[in-house]
Design a protein around this nucleic acid. Sequence first.
DNA 1: ATATTTTTTTAGACAAGCCTAAATTTCTAC
DNA 2: GTAGAAATTTAGGCTTGTCTAAAAAAATAT
Lengths: 217, 217
Amino acid sequence: MLSLAEENYLKAIYHLSEDGTKDVLTNALADSMQTKAASVTDMIKKLSSKKFISYKKYYGVNVTAKGKSQALQVIRKHRLWETFLVQKLDFTWDEVHEVAEQLEHIKSPRLIEKLDEFLGYPATDPHGDPIPDGNGKIKTKPHLPLDQLSEGYRGIIVAVKDSDSDLLKYLDRIGAIPGKKIQLISKEAYDNSMEVILDNHKIFISKEVSKNILVTE
Amino acid sequence: MLSLAEENYLKAIYHLSEDGTKDVLTNALADSMQTKAASVTDMIKKLSSKKFISYKKYYGVNVTAKGKSQALQVIRKHRLWETFLVQKLDFTWDEVHEVAEQLEHIKSPRLIEKLDEFLGYPATDPHGDPIPDGNGKIKTKPHLPLDQLSEGYRGIIVAVKDSDSDLLKYLDRIGAIPGKKIQLISKEAYDNSMEVILDNHKIFISKEVSKNILVTE
DNA sequence: ATATTTTTTTAGACAAGCCTAAATTTCTAC
DNA sequence: GTAGAAATTTAGGCTTGTCTAAAAAAATAT
């Protein structure tokens, strides 16, 4: 049975390694976990001895198949709880992250099965991120950050980065919500800010914001 | 902010002290927490220094007003989650205790407010135990364990003791559920077993079982 | 009233997870 | 290729919550 700290490290390693190709470096993990490099070294030794990650001294870590499956279980729980909070308890999508960080560690396979059923087996969480199924399968839709597209692009918002509460409040206010149509009218060469159409409204957004909006190809 | 262990000790002390009159002894607490007396002594020193309990060496502990209020917040969360699990996720009442033991430690006042609203502000949990309100007020209905009553008694089941999963399965099977009418037909002097009417059915129950059924006076 | 038993506390140790400071390894510049 | 910088690991220590064994206090029995 994984401890709370072990689950959090594993999840962070999984997220930082993205598709599992890159090595996750000690300092990157320390940053992400808001802790010190020395603490990270301790923990990766432990996770490595338990075969959740593979570790080459000084060169970083990677999740093993076993570790990935565990990480996906935690992510599944996190995203199901976020969906519950928004759909059933009327939380706004910028309020759910912290609570879900706690709820994701509740140990009860039955609870998660029942919750999934209660929510109608949702495919994605409120931010558009896919919810892994009970076997750890995850269906990722192809998507790109909006800042990498050029004038004339038309598509649909697939997801938004859910890291920052202020960003989420802003995105909600301008209607940048997964499922919505979006059109890129013009892009300023100088700062890569852009004008887009959302809900039949023209609005300007900065490059910083556009990086956090993920759209269909 | 109380740690998980501190919350669990405080809750156990509150439950063992019943109405707050009795002193809770170190060994009783060690039994209830499934730990050793020495560990209990350590923890009660900590809780005492934080003013959640009053402690007289060798004579046991009692919750302070501050401690009682904290304990009731945890109990409120526990009972709201149990209600959620049964009402919304179709758990049976013998399955909810362990999961609620975990969920009761989630820290989010907003979550509990929203959950309470979602459940329609329930007065009791599935076992009939009253749910404290947001201010820690708890409305206890007067009740007695069935084994203390005599032939001819008629009343209503107020609550059942929720400690044991097998007991709960049995009570469910015979229909001994809070709200149901119950009649005491006869009581055997030798072993205090009794015959009762529940749902128009006559059944025999042992003293052990009758102690766990709480009824109106 | 004192001896024995029971209960509780103290003392000292351990694991998990974190820290700082120092040592080591790798990377980067020339 | 080597010196200095940057990243990582090691060493040793701290806190929380647990334990066992020993000491101390309280309860009980005669």
